[in-house]
Design a protein around this nucleic acid. Structure first.
Lengths: 170, 170
DNA sequence: AAGATACGTCAACATGACTGACGTATCTCG
DNA sequence: CGAGATACGTCAGTCATGTTGACGTATCTT
């Protein structure tokens, strides 16, 4: 609330061309924050001989039961061959099960087994621990800001897909 | 502002055990936001036959010229063998150069060549474009919140290392 | 002079991604 | 009904990036 329309962050910079330091700070915090959060569950995954790829699939299946393979492919943005391997391993170890689509029998619906739900739940517990503590120490206003900036990083075309994850369940 | 110590986000939830949805939202936005930002430079890197690992090294060397190999190892948290390959390739393609340490000649100081600086600068330009637009659409208050939450994700032991990147240079 | 440290390097391997090609079941639509 | 599109699976080969373990050399510290 000092001057006029120009934000206080960058004396003399255009709003579309922010000061280099603020951008670098964002890049660095995003890198370290993201990697440290994901590191938090590596040990637990290793116990089950699983990797991060398995967790991502597990996560989205937990988030949206009866997800189709095609929908999961869009979320993960990898090739079907890569995903195929991951799903095969998850199924072999009894973490997920599949059923033919109801309206379209070409589709394969993905769902967690009880064992899968337990694992996802434990992994989530560990992530929540880290993220909760960051939320609390930053305060609620910071949390909404955190969300808004990250939303702005997601291209228009992908936003619906991401927002559609919410409200379904869990 | 409103009530007492309990944040308004979660009626009935303990501050250390936030509502599941808020945590899942954070996990998802962090995942999509981070991957979409890093995707932004993949094409440019591919033009030079480089990958993300090369960019991370390039980035930190740009950020802190005359960084030692040991310091870079701590920042990247990978093995010296992995980093060795990356640095070798960057050097072969004339993106970086090294010099023996001044105070300690066992050390190797890393620095960008002019070619390296140009590449880093172009990559940074593309990251800035994405991140600036997210900052602007979220607003300055959101940006500081974004920073605070991410700082909270970085373990105590690593914070000094991250914060020390700031202020050295542009 | 001995030991610690900073860095390099050889070798083998794991993970998770990729491309390209091809196969089958099922749905849609003229 | 039949042709073509779609959803999914799979074989085969490759690449990028990480890992462990072992060992070598120059330099610093004490």
């Amino acid at each position: 609330m000092t001057d006029v329309s120009r934000p206080a962050i960058s004396p003399g910079a255009s709003p579309l061309f922010l000061r280099e330091d603020e951008i670098r700070r964002g890049i660095e915090l995003l890198y370290f924050g993201y990697t440290r959060l994901t590191n938090a569950i590596d040990q637990e995954l290793a116990k089950q001989s699983l990797g991060r790829a398995h967790h991502r699939a597990l996560y989205f299946i937990a988030r949206q039961p009866d997800l189709t393979v095609g929908e999961l492919l869009k979320l993960l943005a990898i090739t079907k061959q890569s995903l195929g391997r991951v799903l095969k391993e998850l199924q072999e170890q009894d973490f997920i099960l599949t059923s033919p689509g109801v309206v379209d029998r070409r589709q394969k619906l993905l769902r967690l087994t009880e064992k899968g739900a337990e694992l996802e739940s434990e992994l989530f517990r560990q992530l929540r621990q880290k993220l909760s503590s960051a939320y609390v120490s930053a305060g609620q206003e910071s949390v909404t800001g955190f969300w808004h900036v990250l939303e702005g990083l997601i291209p228009e075309n992908d936003r619906k897909m991401v927002f559609d994850l919410r409200g379904d369940n869990g």
